[in-house]
């Protein structure tokens, strides 16, 4: 309130031109961004064998078909399982590491920070091949467990980075106060730090789940007979354009969307409510 802010100076004409420019940029951007999604969803209801215009229908046949497809359904189950397990492990390990670096003076802290985010700069393809070679080198079989391990490798840097960025100095005061009131280190962590960090932990979990849910190359190299959903969809692609893929893709989109919107509402809805009770000074 008591600081200068950019406001409403400028002639009416300029403002109208500005508004028109803004509208054009936004409209073009959204057209480009949504074009493939709209085509994908629309033609999942297409009553025809090839999903190309002109649109005929609508029909729900393709949805009936994929829901009755056992291979697709079991692949979905595998993906959910791997996603939950790898998201949990990544977030747990990432949070512990971030806590260790943020709250303790560890020798070589700068190097460790760099080291833990390093996997982000390496292509999934290379990580997949590396793990594949390691499996063949040690004689271990390909499995869904190996896929899960690979997904923790790619998600751990992300979870670590999110937790580290949110472990700011402002919680230190509360941690110190709790210690002063007699809490042990474990109690401080569980009763103060984790509850204060939960939005970041939840964000990290959601993001890791989505990345695992969507990952193809590592899952392709490391899985054998039991596969994940992206690998199954990949094998469907060999049949060319097919409305069944549209239907499957639409369902996958819907699932991701629900988790994303839940996350938006939980985190930002909460923040907005806080904002209303305590407006900025």
């Amino acid at each position: 309130m008591s600081e200068l802010r950019p406001q409403d100076v400028g002639s009416l004409g300029r403002r109208i031109v500005g508004t028109a420019g803004t509208t054009v940029v936004i409209a073009l951007a959204y057209l480009f961004i949504f074009l493939p999604v709209v085509v994908l969803v629309l033609f999942s209801f297409h009553d025809g064998r090839v999903p190309v215009p002109p649109f005929q229908g609508p029909t729900l046949d393709w949805y009936k078909m994929i829901l009755g497809d056992d291979r697709l359904m079991s692949a979905t189950g595998h993906s959910v399982g791997i996603g939950l397990a790898s998201a949990f492990l990544s977030t747990l390990l990432g949070f512990l590491a971030a806590f260790g670096l943020a709250r303790h003076a560890v020798p070589g802290a700068g190097f460790l920070r760099w080291f833990l985010v390093l996997p982000l700069t390496v292509s999934y393809l290379i990580i997949g091949i590396g793990l594949l070679i390691a499996l063949s080198y040690t004689g271990l079989p390909k499995s869904l467990l190996a896929v899960m391990i690979g997904h923790v490798v790619i998600n751990l840097p992300l979870a670590f980075a999110i937790c580290f960025s949110q472990l700011g100095g402002h919680q230190v005061v509360y941690e110190r106060a709790a210690r002063d009131l007699g809490a042990s280190e474990g109690q401080v962590l569980m009763r103060i730090t984790v509850p204060m960090m939960w939005p970041a932990l939840f964000a990290s979990f959601c993001l890791c789940f989505n990345f695992s849910w969507d990952e193809f190359v590592i899952a392709f190299f490391l899985s054998n007979f039991d596969v994940t959903l992206p690998v199954e969809i990949w094998s469907m692609l060999r049949t060319g354009l097919n409305p069944m893929i549209n239907a499957a893709g639409t369902l996958v989109f819907l699932l991701s969307l629900i988790s994303f919107l839940a996350f938006e509402i939980l985190i930002f809805g909460k923040r907005a409510r806080h904002g209303r009770t305590a407006p900025e000074a």
Binding site: M1, S2, E3, L4, R5, P6, Q7, D8, V9
Partner: peptide
């Protein structure tokens, strides 16, 4: 005091606020 409008007045003189 804060909220008296003094900064808004300055902002109007500077041309940042109409």
């Amino acid at each position: 005091p804060s909220g008296s409008g003094k900064t808004t007045l300055l902002s109007i003189v500077g041309g940042f606020t109409a």
